[in-house]
């Protein structure tokens, strides 16, 4: 396990995602209203690329005919068969206890810390005055 600097914070504005390669793994980083989440890009069903999926609301219902949306943008739908995954937990909607996408720890670090720390930022220069998204993988 190592810490990888994968993007500058302003590269992934709220509601957007970025696909990155870290230690040979494809990982997709989502920004939900300022909170970052990193999921393995590979759908646990048949391998669809989650970075290509739409993010949408959680749709629930207490009674037939009612469609209730909440948590706008916090569910990612696999671009292939449409299974929904909770970006915050990686759990699938259809079988949350058995089927989930691997999650990675993400933190936001100031450039100042990064310049000093044991961080890998292979693909771009780190500036002291910026903030960066760091994935543990």
């Amino acid at each position: 396990m190592a810490s990888h600097v994968v993007a500058a914070v302003d590269e992934i504005p709220p509601g957007r995602r970025k696909l990155v390669e870290v230690a040979g793994r494809n990982i997709v980083v989502f920004n939900l209203g300022g909170d970052f989440f990193a999921l393995n890009n590979r759908c646990p069903h048949r391998g669809g690329s989650l970075a290509h999926g739409i993010t949408t609301a959680l749709v629930e219902s207490t009674v037939p005919g009612e469609y209730r949306c909440s948590r706008a943008g916090e569910m990612v739908k696999c671009p292939w068969h449409g299974w929904e995954f909770d970006i915050r937990t990686g759990k699938s909607w259809c079988d949350p206890s058995r089927l989930r996408v691997r999650q990675y720890t993400v933190t936001v670090k100031e450039g100042r810390e990064l310049v000093e720390g044991p961080y890998k930022a292979e693909s771009f220069p780190v500036r002291v005055e910026n903030n960066y998204v760091v994935v543990e993988a």
Binding site: G48, H52, G53, P79, W80, G82
Partner: peptide, 10 residues
Amino acid sequence: KMQPMASRRD
């Protein structure tokens, strides 16, 4: 359909 053109989004 549930996806545009009933197609994979990618």
